[in-house]
Write a protein that binds this DNA or RNA. Structure first.
Length: 637
RNA sequence: GCGCCCGUAGCUCAGCUGGAUAGAGCGACAGCCUCCGGAGCUGUAGGUCAGAGGUUCGAAUCCUCUCGGGCGCACCA
C-alpha cells in the first residue's frame, strides 16, 4: 500500500507544479529524519530552484498553497531549506495497516525465476561458507514469493567433478575400501569425508604420479561405469543426504535437485557443445599450452580484454569436460533453450524431485525460466561471466542478459576463531577457509553449539518445560541466530566469522527479534487474562483521536508501513541485508516503546487502545519480515 | 600487469537513486525489575567518514588519482 500511496502523492504534486510553474518535474519522496517533521518530504522546490531561478523556500511556500493533497493527508508544511513536508492522518493510516496486506499486492504475471543456490560439492561436510550461500538464496526465494513472483529453487550437485573424484581416490586407493564397506560407515558420513578429503590433497603432494588416479577416476565418474563410478554415486548420495538434513534444520528447502551426472548421461553437454562448434564459439587447439583442448576464445569480448590468457578450456585434452562446459549446457536448459529435458524422479525420503536419466512419467514442469539467478560466491565471477558469454556466443543475448550472478563475498574465519580452532593465521587478518586443507567450521557443528546454548538460556528462564518443547524452541532460536547472522551484513563484504559474535543472542541478533515478538504477544495474553479486550480492530483504531498517536508511537507505525518498499528494493537489488536491518529497526523501536508505554496498566481506555494498536501493527510488520528471513516465532523463550 | 570488492567510534557493521544534527550492536563507565519477561531499557564517553583533488546550493554518498587490505585472472569448482 505504501508504494501506491507515495506514487499518488508524487503525481498530485507533479500536477500542482505544472499548474503553478508550467514545468515538468517528477518529485521524489524522502523520509524526514524525525517524525515531528512529517511522514514524507518532497525536496522538489530545492530541485526546481535552479531552473526557476528563485529561492527554494519561496517556491515551496507557493506550492504548499497551490497543492491540494488527497484524503489521508492531514497537513502539508514547508520546512528547512524548502522541503515540502506531508503529515498523514494517523488514525486512518493506522487502521489501514491493521487490515491491509503489507507485502505483495502487485499481481504481476511475471514469468518464472529459477534460483540456483547451495550447490555444495557432495564430497565433504557443509561449512559456514556454504551456509551464507544457502541462507541468502533461501531468503531471496522467500522475498520473491512474498512479492507474488513464481520461483523455482534448484540445488545443483556436481557429482562428477574433481572433488568427488578425490574422495573416491581416498576410499579406493588410500583406504582400500570396497563400496560395501563405505556404505557401512557410520554417520556422520560427511564429517568422515571432510577429514579424508584433506588427507587426499596431502597424499597427491607426496607423489605427483598419483595424479593419474584422479584423472582415471574422473573419467569413470563421467562415463558412469565401473567400481569408481559406483563409489562416486555412493559418496555423492550419502553426503547430499547429510547436506539436505543440515539445510532442513534451517528451514532451507528446494524444488529440484539437479545432478551433473544427468547432464552428462543425457548428453546435454554434447548437444550444447555441438552448437558451440557450429557457432564457431569453440576451437580445438593444435599447440601451445592448451594443445589438445577445446577452448572458448574470449579475446574479442570486451569484458575479457586485458586478460593474460583470454581462452577458457571447455574440454580437456583427455576428453573430460570442465565445469564451465557443463554449466553452459545447464544454463541453456534452465531457459528452455536446449531442446531437451531431464527425466525426473521423486525422492520420497526427502520429499522432493531430482533429475534422472530415466524418470517418472508424470512430474511437475521444471526449467523454462524467464529469469535465472545463480547464487554463487564472488570468487567465481569470472566463471559466471564465461557462462553468460557462452549464451551470447550462441546468439541467446536476451537469456544472457537475464542471467544474474548473485555474487556475495566469502566467509573467512576471524583471527580469534582461527586461533581457537588451532589454525595458524597472521595477526589481525581473517583466514580463508579451505575444504581441501580441512580449514573451516562445519555447519552442523555450529548449529549444535547454537542449539546447546539456546537450550541453556531457555531452561534458565523456564523451569518446567517438556523435553520436546525445549528442543523445538532451542532449534527455533538457533535458526534465528544463524540466519540473521548470515544475512545482516552487506553481501559485498567479506564475512569474518567469529564464534563469540555468532553465538551472541543479544543486541543485533535473531533472538532479539524473536524476543520482541514474544513480548508483544504476551501483552495480548495478559489483557485477555485480565478480562480486557486483547486486540483492536481497524474500525476502532480509525476512531481514535489523532493526538493519541504521539510521535514516538507513530514512528513505529511509520516504519512498519515502509516494509513492502524495503522488500521490493531488497529483491530487486539482491541486497537482502536491507530486510534484516529493517527487522532490527522495528524490534529496536518496539523495545524502546515497550518500557514507556504500558498497556495493561494504563487506565485510560483510548490511550490503552492506541498503544495496543501500535504494538499489533508492529507484530504484523515484524512477523512478515521475520518470515522472509526464515526466522520462526517461538511461543516463549 | 588487468579486473572485482572493502577502508566510517577501541572492535563488528548501518548510512537508500547526493539533502535536514553521521547511527546501531559489542566492549567501557553510570543507572533501571513491588509494575505487560532484564535475551530488555535509559544515559555518558568515543568519529580529520583512509588521503588528496573535482562536480554541486549541498558529498560519508557521485567522478579522478594516491595509499592500505581482500579476492579473482587453472586442462579445481
Amino acid at each position: 500500500m505504501w508504494s501506491v500511496w507515495k506514487r499518488d502523492l508524487a503525481q498530485g504534486l507533479s500536477a500542482a507544479i505544472r499548474a503553478a510553474f508550467g514545468v515538468e518535474h517528477d518529485p521524489v519522496a524522502e523520509i524526514p529524519p524525525r517524525r515531528a517533521l512529517g511522514d514524507l518530504a518532497f525536496p522538489a522546490a530545492l530541485h526546481l530552484a535552479k531552473t526557476l531561478r528563485r529561492k527554494p523556500r519561496e517556491i515551496a511556500e507557493e506550492l504548499a498553497r497551490a497543492w491540494r493533497p488527497p484524503a489521508g493527508v492531514r497537513e502539508v508544511r514547508v520546512e528547512g531549506a524548502g522541503y515540502l513536508n506531508v503529515y498523514f492522518d494517523r488514525p486512518a493510516f493506522a487502521a489501514r495497516l491493521l487490515a491491509e496486506p503489507l507485502l505483495g499486492g502487485g499481481a504481476e504475471d511475471a514469468g518464472k525465476t529459477v534460483v540456483e543456490h547451495t550447490n555444495i560439492n557432495p564430497n565433504k561436510a557443509a561449512h559456514i561458507g556454504h551456509l551464507r550461500n544457502a541462507v541468502l538464496g533461501d531468503t531471496l526465494v522467500r522475498c520473491l514469493r512474498a512479492l507474488a513472483r513464481p520461483v523455482e529453487v534448484q540445488n545443483y550437485i556436481d557429482d562428477t567433478g574433481v572433488q568427488v573424484a578425490d574422495v573416491v581416490v581416498g576410499f579406493v586407493d588410500i583406504e582400500r575400501r570396497t563400496v560395501a564397506e563405505v556404505a557401512a560407515l557410520p554417520e556422520p558420513f560427511d564429517f568422515y569425508c571432510w577429514d579424508l578429503y584433506s588427507r587426499v590433497g596431502a597424499w597427491y603432494e607426496e607423489d605427483a604420479a598419483r595424479q593419474h588416479l584422479r584423472r582415471e577416476t574422473l573419467h569413470e565418474l563421467e562415463s558412469g561405469r565401473g567400481e569408481r563410478a559406483e563409489m562416486g554415486r555412493l559418496v555423492a548420495r550419502r553426503v547430499l543426504t547429510r547436506h539436505l538434513g543440515t539445510m532442513a534444520r534451517l528451514g532451507v528447502g528446494y524444488d529440484l535437485i539437479t545432478h551433473e551426472s544427468d547432464i552428462l548421461a543425457l548428453d546435454f553437454f554434447h548437444l550444447a557443445f555441438a552448437r558451440l562448434q557450429e557457432a564457431g564459439a569453440v576451437r580445438l587447439e593444435a599447440d601451445g599450452k592448451n594443445a589438445g583442448c577445446w577452448v572458448m576464445p574470449l579475446a574479442d569480448t570486451p569484458e575479457f580484454a586485458g586478460l593474460e590468457d583470454p581462452d577458457k578450456v571447455i574440454v580437456r585434452s583427455d576428453g573430460t569436460i570442465t565445469y564451465v562446459g557443463k554449466d553452459i549446457a545447464y544454463q541453456l536448459w534452465k531457459f528452455g533453450l536446449l531442446g531437451k529435458d531431464f527425466g525426473y524422479r521423486w525422492w520420497p525420503e526427502q520429499g522432493l524431485w531430482q533429475t534422472a536419466a530415466e524418470g517418472a512419467r508424470e512430474h511437475p514442469p521444471f526449467g523454462g525460466a524467464e529469469r535465472v539467478v545463480n547464487v554463487i560466491d564472488a570468487r567465481q565471477s569470472y566463471l559466471q561471466k564465461i557462462v553468460r558469454a557462452g549464451l551470447s556466443a550462441l546468439g541467446h543475448h536476451e537469456a544472457a542478459r537475464r542471467s544474474t550472478h548473485f555474487a556475495y563475498e566469502m566467509v573467512a574465519l576471524s583471527p580469534a576463531t582461527a586461533r581457537l580452532l588451532g589454525f595458524a593465521s597472521e595477526d589481525g587478518k581473517a583466514l580463508e577457509m579451505s575444504g581441501r586443507k580441512g580449514i573451516g567450521v562445519k555447519a552442523d557443528e555450529l548449529l549444535d553449539r547454537l542449539e546447546g546454548k539456546a537450550r541453556e538460556e531457555i531452561a534458565a528462564r523456564n523451569r518446567e518445560l517438556e523435553r520436546e518443547e525445549l528442543r523445538r524452541l532451542a532449534r527455533q532460536i538457533a535458526t534465528a541466530a544463524l540466519r540473521f547472522f548470515m544475512v545482516k551484513t552487506t553481501t559485498t563484504r567479506v564475512l569474518a566469522f567469529d564464534f563469540d559474535e555468532a553465538l551472541s543472542f543479544e543486541g543485533d541478533s535473531g533472538p532479539y527479534l524473536q524476543y520482541s515478538l514474544v513480548r508483544a504477544r504476551n501483552i495480548g495474553r495478559r489483557l485477555a487474562a485480565a478480562g480486557l479486550e486483547p486486540e483492536v480492530g481497524a474500525e476502532a483504531a480509525a476512531a481514535l483521536a489523532s493526538e493519541l498517536w504521539t510521535d514516538d508511537l507513530w514512528e513505529l507505525v511509520h516504519a512498519v508501513a515502509r516494509t513492502g518498499e524495503v522488500v521490493d528494493k531488497a529483491a530487486s537489488t539482491l541486497e537482502l541485508s536491507l530486510v534484516a536491518r529493517h527487522a532490527l529497526d522495528l524490534a529496536q523501536a518496539f523495545h524502546a516503546l515497550y518500557h514507556h508505554h504500558p498497556v495493561l496498566h494504563e487506565e485510560d481506555p483510548a490511550l490503552r487502545r492506541t498503544r495496543l494498536a501500535t504494538f499489533q501493527i508492529f507484530a504484523r510488520g515484524l512477523r512478515a519480515t521475520a518470515d522472509l528471513l526464515g526466522i520462526p516465532e517461538p511461543e516463549r523463550m
